[in-house]
């Protein structure tokens, strides 16, 4: 049954668009466009969950889809925009790795993920498409965390990784049990709030949110 779901054209379209939105984040130097792209990515993720819910008819997955829509594509981007406004950071992202190398590395990561998932070879062809997209999201999220200077971008990187895992979970098993999913949503939301508090503190004490400044504790 899963093959039917993940083989459908609409599903492949959504997953491809999720990858595109990830590259929008990689290729942008403006904080707002990154946050917008993240919002789009989460919206697409909610759509994936919605398609799975429609075809399986399970109420649990409907709830998960709605929560994804509400929390990840509306609430969290809103929190981001609030933070950016309040701390009045420069809207440009400082980079350790330039835009074009970033995009190339992103492409390489997608290819590697695809071959890695293929080599495990325990999953059917069609859901492995979703799974390799999920691996790509995780690795690109990690790459964004280490290649961008602003603390906000590290926070965004973690959320991209989390989105990737969500895609992986829903493509492998139609999502975890509802209680566990709810717990994960709760943790993600609280995590975003607390990272927000930390960013405010960093901004207040160091007068910047560039993580260059956080290099005093060593040895």
């Amino acid at each position: 049954m899963e093959e039917v779901i993940f083989g459908s054209n609409i599903m492949q379209l959504f997953i491809a668009l999720i990858l595109v939105s990830t590259f929008m984040i990689l290729g942008s130097t403006r904080l707002y466009s990154c946050v917008r792209a993240f919002g789009i990515q989460s919206f697409l993720l909610a759509s994936v969950a919605g398609v799975v819910a429609l075809s399986t008819g399970k109420i649990d997955i409907y709830i998960v889809a709605i929560l994804t829509l509400a929390i990840k594509s509306i609430l969290i981007p809103y929190i981001f925009i609030y933070i950016i406004r309040e701390i009045k950071v420069k809207r440009e992202i400082a980079l350790y790795v330039g835009i074009s190398p970033s995009l190339i590395i992103g492409g390489i990561l997608v290819v590697i993920s695809y071959y890695l998932i293929r080599s495990i070879n325990v999953i059917t062809d069609l859901s492995s498409f979703a799974l390799s997209a999920s691996m790509s999201l995780v690795s690109i999220g990690l790459f964004i965390m280490i290649s961008r200077k602003k603390a906000i971008m590290q926070m965004l990187g973690i959320l991209i990784m989390e989105n990737g895992l969500f895609l992986g979970a829903i493509s492998l098993t139609n999502g975890m049990p509802l209680l566990v999913e709810l717990g994960i949503f709760f943790d993600v939301l609280i995590g975003v709030l607390i990272m927000g508090i930390l960013i405010f503190r960093i901004n207040k004490t160091f007068e910047t949110i560039d993580t260059d400044m956080l290099k005093n504790l060593i040895g």
């Binding site: 590290q154 990784m161 989390e162 098993t173 956080l214």
Partner: peptide
């Protein structure tokens, strides 16, 4: 300053680590 730096590193590194654990759990 130092405790904010420590808290940020702690938060970021452990959250990423824990994300891997979530993948293992899945």
């Amino acid at each position: 300053k130092s405790s904010i730096e420590a808290a940020w590193k702690y938060m970021i590194i452990c959250t990423v680590g824990i994300t891997f654990a979530l993948f293992g759990t899945i």
